[in-house]
Simulated scan of single mutants.
Amino acid sequence: MHKNITILQAAHLPEKTERELQETFDIIRLPKDHDEGMRMLAELGAKIRGIAVRHAHIDKAMLDTMPALEIISSYSAGLDGIDVEAAQARGIAVHNTSKILAEDVADLAVALAISVTRGTVRGHDFVRDGSWEQGGAFPLGRSLRSLKTGIIGLGHIGSAITRRLQAMGATVAYQGPRKKPVDIAYFATAVELAAWADLLIVTCPATPETIGLIDQHVLDALGPEGFLVNIARGTIVDEAALIATLSRGGIAGAGLDVFEKEPHVPDALRNDPRVVLSPHMGSGTRETRQQMGDRMVEALLEHFAKR
């Protein structure tokens, strides 16, 4: 028990996770309103030693209100909204759950890749609306294992996708900030990878270096026979450029789990039969969501057990 340790809960969490935090720590909840939250932190921030976060914005100004802060434990794969550089400069430990959710996100990435290349959603509609019964001819798709697949970001998720694709017989290459000790081809830039690939899957975190990475140049390099899948963050793909490219047949299709301004999805994407959409559900299984909560609490427990 660490009831003498105060944790700022900046997240709505699974019931079991909420209960474990309440039973273990002294919990302060962050108000949803930013100004109200800053007023509360001005009063109580000095005693906060840890943060349990999900999607809240934790910037340097907020961190400065918590001089005793030792750890940020995030219930997510990415660290969007957290000023990681400011936290690390103060020696604050920062943890996320990317390893926990990698397998489920990889499953969805492959599902989207199959859906967009084989036209499974369109096939569903083709049967449901009676077109098949009326003698319509459904167009041929592409064989996923025959497509050269480029992975943007070979972390936990990118590696899990690579294992699945290789098991299916696909040829895989990757791009990232540095070459890794793996036995697959490496490309130094996203444009070079896209020019090689038939299918491009985006798995990298959203950072200042990756936001807008999949721009018009990358989409042009992917070409009219190429497919794009994004299960990372919507801001990594230039959404306006993607819409413009699709409108002129510049790529063959896209599978998207994430969007620039969620939950808003532009009509041009929602109404394009070449685009398969899902509602940011990459880690959305009961099993993984609970494991994410468990790991978030474990990171806090492990940290303070050393104190």
Rank of each mutant, 00 (worst) to 15 (best):
H2L: 11
I5Y: 01
R19L: 15
E20T: 09
E20S: 07
L21R: 04
E23R: 09
T24G: 07
H34S: 12
M40C: 03
L41F: 02
A42G: 10
A52V: 03
A56S: 12
H57V: 15
K60D: 12
A61W: 03
P67H: 01
L69W: 00
I72W: 08
S76F: 13
L79N: 12
G81E: 13
I82T: 10
D83I: 11
V84Q: 05
A86R: 10
A87T: 10
Q88C: 15
R90K: 13
H95L: 06
H95P: 00
N96I: 11
A106T: 04
A109E: 15
A109F: 10
A113L: 04
A113K: 01
S115C: 06
R118Y: 08
G119L: 06
G119W: 06
T120L: 14
R122K: 07
F126W: 03
F126R: 01
G130N: 00
G136V: 02
G136A: 09
I151T: 06
G155W: 01
H156Q: 15
H156Y: 13
T162I: 06
R163W: 09
R163Q: 14
R164H: 00
L165A: 03
T171K: 03
P177E: 10
K180E: 15
F187A: 01
A188H: 03
T189A: 09
W196I: 15
I201K: 06
P205N: 09
A206W: 09
A206R: 12
L219I: 04
L219N: 10
D220C: 05
L222P: 05
G223S: 09
P224M: 07
G226S: 02
L228V: 00
V229L: 05
A232V: 04
G234C: 07
G234I: 01
A241T: 08
L242S: 08
S247W: 00
G253E: 01
A254V: 01
G255N: 02
K261A: 11
D267G: 12
N271K: 07
P273R: 13
R274L: 07
P279F: 10
G284E: 15
T285A: 14
R286P: 08
E287V: 10
Q290E: 14
V297S: 14
E298N: 10
K306I: 05
R307P: 05
